[in-house]
């Protein structure tokens, strides 16, 4: 568990350094995710697994919702802006979420071959 958590942090750390050092427009944690994926694939080819990383990742991901709470409570600092523009904000959020869901889902279902 501790090993796994350390590995996740090292990947994020490396991702942040790469992103900032090379002025990439991609956020550090996303690069970190790609680094970890590469690492897991290399280990996999050698027939090795990473049980610690798996355990730490599953632990974090099973409470993913919790991690959004602190930023969400920040809604109280933006009440004035939201109250002043609530119709535009509500319509934009609802419309764009529906558009995003429909377009992605329909394109994927049309293009993906059924699995055997």
């Amino acid at each position: 568990m501790l090993q796994g958590l350390t590995m996740l942090l090292i990947c994020q750390f490396a991702g942040e350094i790469l992103a900032r050092g090379l002025f990439l427009p991609v956020p550090g944690p996303v690069l970190g995710m790609l680094l970890l994926l590469t690492g897991l694939a290399i280990r996999g080819r050698q027939g090795k697994t990473a049980p610690g990383v798996k355990q730490a990742a599953e632990g974090l991901l099973s409470h993913l919702g919790l991690l959004f709470v602190p930023a969400g409570v920040g809604v109280i600092t933006e009440i004035d802006v939201l109250a002043g523009n609530w119709i535009a904000v509500a319509a934009a959020l609802l419309g764009s979420t529906i558009a995003g869901l429909l377009v992605t889902g329909v394109v994927m279902q049309r293009l993906a071959k059924p699995e055997m």
Partner: peptide
């Protein structure tokens, strides 16, 4: 206090590599 929970969004994003792999 809540920042410690908020911080974990970073490692959790990295952790998405596991179900992807």
């Amino acid at each position: 206090g809540a920042q410690y929970v908020h911080f974990l969004l970073g490692p959790a994003t990295v952790a998405l590599a596991v179900p992807m792999y």
